[in-house]
Computed example of a mutant assay.
Amino acid sequence: MKFRERMAEKLKLPKDLVMGAAVLTVTGHSEAYIENYRGIIEYTEQRIRLQTKTCQMTLCGEQLHIDYYTEDEMKISGQIGEIRYC
């Protein structure tokens, strides 16, 4: 376990704040909220690929679109069929 992870656990701090980890909240198959992403790598109606601090995240499906995004968070809508981490 890395130093930051141990400190977060001992101090009972949220890992997303301490480590900058991405936070993914999925509602059914139609909405996803992503926090702490770094950038958009690929954006089509079938695939949205994002860079996070620790990995890449890919959402696959149909009629995918980004409803909004800021420096810290975004909302993706459509028919989400698969979420992958690389």
Rank of each mutant, 00 (worst) to 15 (best):
I48E: 08
T70D: 10
K15S: 01
A22W: 01
K2S: 10
K15R: 04
Y33A: 05
F3I: 09
G28F: 05
I34W: 09
E42R: 15
L59C: 07
I41R: 14
Y85T: 09
Q56W: 11
Y33E: 07
H29I: 11
T70Q: 08
G78S: 09
E31S: 10
S77R: 14
I41K: 15
M74L: 15
Y69V: 02
V18W: 01
V18S: 01
Q51S: 15
G39A: 15
M7R: 00
E82C: 10
Y69G: 02
K15D: 00
E71L: 13
F3C: 01
N36R: 08
Y33F: 12
T54V: 04
S77N: 13
T70E: 08
L24P: 03
D16W: 04
I76Y: 04
C60E: 15
R38S: 13
Q79F: 14
G78Y: 08
G20W: 03
V23I: 09
G78M: 09
R4H: 00
R84F: 03
T52P: 12
K53G: 12
R49E: 11
I40L: 14
Q56A: 13
M57F: 15
E5D: 06
A22N: 00
Q63S: 14
T25Y: 05
A32E: 05
V18Y: 02
I48Y: 07
K10W: 01
T52W: 07
V18Q: 00
A22Y: 02
T52K: 08
T52L: 14
E82I: 02
S77E: 14
R4Q: 03
G81M: 11
I66D: 06
E82D: 13
K2E: 07
R47I: 09
Y85R: 11
E73A: 10
I40Q: 07
E62N: 15
C60M: 13
V26C: 08
D16S: 05
M19V: 00
D72L: 15
M1A: 05
K53A: 13
G81L: 13
Y33K: 09
T52I: 09
E62F: 07
C55R: 15
G20H: 02
E62T: 13
T27Q: 12
E5R: 00
Q63Y: 12
T25A: 04
L59G: 09
C60Q: 14
R4K: 02
Q79C: 12
H29F: 13
Y68N: 07
A32N: 06
Y85D: 04
K15Q: 00
Q56L: 10
Q79R: 15
F3M: 05
P14V: 00
M74Y: 06
M57L: 15
I76H: 05
K75G: 02
K10S: 01
L50G: 09
I34G: 05
